[in-house]
Amino acid sequence: MAESVVSKPARAAAPQRTSREKRSVVDWLRSNSVYIAFALLVAFNLAVTPGFDNVYALRQLLFEAAPLILIALGQSLAIGTRGIDLSVGSMMALSSSVIAVAIGLGQPGAIVTAIAVTTLVGLFNGSMVTFLRVDPLISGLALLVAGRGLAKVLLGGSRVDLPSGGILGWLGMQSYFFVPVVAIIAIVIAVVVAALVRGTTFGRYTLFAGASRSAAFLAGTPVRRTLLGVYAISGLLAGLAGVFASARTGAADPNYIGVLFELDAIAAAVIGGNPLSGGRVSILGAVFGALLLQVLDATFIMNNIDYTYAQILKAGFIVAALYLQRAGH
């Protein structure tokens, strides 16, 4: 898979860094902290946690990680533009509800409709950010509240069972060699997004918009179109994540699906080395950030330790990751 991507525009910080040349070991540790933390946590689990070195446990872990990876990808792009997308958790719920409402169209039709709806909402979010210059934090916040409200209203606030066969059943259950289909899809999409960031002008514009909005504008890059695209992609991926989560749950459950996922997605992106100051996107980092959070949850659950302590530790991780990034500037 693609390497961590350091953008050209991010080189603006380079002169300061040269004075710290001798601290290159520290720098290396810092820029690879997510992989080191992941490796340490996995090693710890292999040594201590009973049943962790089990393919079924791995499969379960990947099933749960797939939706988080998807929204962490969208989040990384938004953060790369110096924005944020708080609506992703609610978009998962909205997607789930739309599937239930549109199930009469047949499963493929319902899934496509659901993803189209969340993509449109993402486009709307992007329009507010670009054309009305609303702070992305606040437009995302409004969509977070309204999106979940809408998802609940669509189903009258209750849980609706979805058909257990067909595409949804395949997504929810099927795995090949203990790797779930949804995880394979998520990884493929991660590769595509990484290629998008690295190899396309769209990716360059995204990083450029985050590194310096006004410079990007003055240089004549299509900042507005880029931002619209980024939020639309984030909406699309959140919609797909909602499809995955609904398929796994076997039901559309707007009270449950995607709750607090926006926080996990941001945490995954930040821990993975996507600074909130924008201009830099690390897709591989985001994927490992998501996996790290998932393994962290699993560590606590499989050791029968109260899940709430996992939350406290997660909070510590986020602060530590951010502190390290700050030191890197």
């Binding site: 609303v134 437009s139 916040l141 409004a142 309204a146 409200g149 609940k152 209203v153």
Partner: peptide, 23 residues
């Protein structure tokens, strides 16, 4: 109306307020 409408309404309210403020 269920409590869900309240979320929808406050979200919509926030949206409108933000747009007016921005303008």
């Amino acid at each position: 109306l269920s409590a869900s409408y309240q979320q929808l309404a406050s979200g919509a309210f926030l949206l409108v307020a933000v747009i007016i403020q921005s303008l």
